[in-house]
Computed example of a mutant assay.
Amino acid sequence: MLQFAFKLVGALALVVLATALPVAPEAVAAGITSDYTKIRLEACKQIAAADTEEGTFGGAWQCAGYKGLPVYVAEGDLRMFVSFGPTAEDEPAAGQTLPNFNTVNETLEWRLRDGVPFATILRWFPSVDDSGKTGSVLIVTQLLPGGGTCQIARVDAQANKNANVLARQAADSMAGSFDCSNPPVIIGAPGILY
């Protein structure tokens, strides 16, 4: 009888634990897909010229993203800034970058829910030291025009074997509800993002 009671308590504990866990990623990702565009500054419209006097502002461009959605790219003090949407320059993302000198990859992943973009994932290459060595960081940005387009998560792609999976999970679970007054969340092993 005592053995039966332990089995019953164990079974009940499993039921409680199963209901307390979040929904499986596959269930959350239902209806979520990815599409890809390129950021090629030579094909984008330059909207601000480089500052020749101070030399710290390298210019700004407007590129076409998923289905023509505007992508704002700027360079200042050897750091990149990327934002999205019709008022991309005014969104919080337009002022966010990594602390180290950096560049961005040209491939931009758009996370889509039923064909509507809600987040992006872009690989950034921050400098690691004076030797020219760079790191690799995936930055997830939520797309909420009107002040809610901001970086929500960062994943060190060299410190995490499953960096792409982690970035997609962050996009799918955090985008749309992230408060842009908070700093982006570091996901996985921090690596150079400590």
Rank of each mutant, 00 (worst) to 15 (best):
T107Y: 07
T107K: 15
T107W: 08
L108M: 15
L108D: 01
L108H: 12
L108I: 02
L108G: 07
L108V: 08
L108E: 00
L108C: 09
E109D: 09
E109I: 08
W110Y: 07
W110Q: 02
W110H: 07
W110P: 11
W110G: 03
R111H: 15
R111Y: 15
R111A: 05
R111C: 05
L112F: 14
L112I: 11
L112P: 15
R113I: 04
R113K: 15
R113G: 13
R113F: 11
R113W: 07
R113P: 09
D114T: 10
D114R: 13
G115H: 15
G115E: 11
G115K: 13
G115W: 11
G115F: 12
V116K: 15
V116E: 15
V116L: 12
V116I: 15
V116A: 14
P117C: 05
P117N: 07
P117L: 00
F118L: 04
F118N: 08
F118P: 10
F118R: 09
A119S: 13
A119D: 06
A119W: 11
A119K: 08
A119Y: 07
A119E: 09
A119C: 04
T120V: 12
T120L: 00
T120R: 01
T120M: 04
T120F: 03
I121H: 01
I121A: 06
L122T: 02
L122K: 01
L122I: 09
R123V: 04
R123T: 12
R123W: 07
R123I: 01
W124T: 03
W124H: 07
W124L: 14
F125C: 00
F125N: 13
P126Q: 03
P126E: 02
P126R: 03
P126C: 05
P126S: 09
P126G: 06
P126H: 12
S127Y: 07
S127P: 00
V128W: 00
V128P: 05
D129K: 06
D129I: 02
D129N: 14
D129S: 00
D129V: 05
D130L: 03
D130E: 15
D130G: 04
S131L: 04
S131P: 08
S131M: 00
S131W: 10
S131I: 02
G132L: 02
G132F: 11
G132H: 07
G132P: 07
G132E: 06
G132N: 09
G132M: 04
G132S: 08
K133P: 00
K133W: 01
K133M: 08
K133L: 04
K133A: 14
K133N: 13
K133V: 02
T134G: 01
G135W: 05
G135C: 07
G135L: 03
S136I: 02
S136T: 07
S136A: 14
V137H: 09
V137L: 03
V137N: 05
V137P: 12
V137Q: 09
V137I: 14
L138V: 02
L138Q: 05
L138H: 14
